[in-house]
Design a binder for these strands. Structure first.
Lengths: 108, 108
DNA sequence: TAGGAATATTCTTGTAAAGGAATATTTAGA
DNA sequence: TCTAAATATTCCTTTACAAGAATATTCCTA
């Protein structure tokens, strides 16, 4: 499974879904609990959870007539790995603006 | 400055903008270079860069009649920090599904 | 100062997606 | 088997936004 950073970012970009994900850091919750804590209507809660599920960010476990949602770890690890690829950018010698300017000058 | 994770995620969620950001890991580039390397039209390139700039992900430096864009580091660090808040979730003892199920059983 | 190169902006249009409301589905229990 | 609770799904409407095309702006140079 290659890391689909795009899918992960798209799913997280929606404010309410971000809230849901942040809430689920505390632990698994049912749809009803999520809706109550975030003051969302049940249908939109289910829909957002569906999107998160499709993106692979959460998984479901049926329990009686309830569904318990919890976070998956892989996409977050993938996202963290992706961010790691930026680390060298922050090192001073990689802020190549001056170098770049000189290159531009040289073109004249 | 509080970390606006939402804004960062929204800006990165667009596939072409993600490409632009990934390209800028290599170093600063002008609009024309970005458009050429990613095979984008100049106007949309400028527009995407405008969004990234507004979200604080890139900064611009004018040079002659060109604009050199480079990545900002703060939002990426903030995003990384945000991801750190998930670390405890991955520890086994925090995967509280069983614990949660028992709590549910106890309600009966 | 006229022209061309690089970039930004505006306007329009098409589309994806979020919200609201209503309804369907599933499950436990009387 | 009927009902109620929990959740999912469908339909409709509205809105945000990306693409495309055309135009405006800025700056250098001849």
């Amino acid at each position: 499974m290659s890391a689909n950073i795009n899918a992960t970012l798209s799913a997280l970009a929606e404010p309410k879904r971000l809230q849901i994900v942040e809430l689920l850091r505390e632990g698994p919750l049912t749809v009803g609990e999520i809706a109550e804590k975030l003051e969302l209507l049940q249908p939109q809660t289910s829909k957002h959870l569906g999107v998160l599920n499709k993106a692979g960010l959460v998984e479901v476990k049926a329990q009686a007539n309830m569904r318990i949602y919890k976070l998956c770890q892989q996409p977050f690890k993938d996202l963290d790995g992706w961010l790691t690829s930026f680390e060298h950018v922050w090192e001073e010698r990689f802020d190549r603006l001056d170098e770049y300017l000189q290159k531009l000058q040289g073109k004249d």
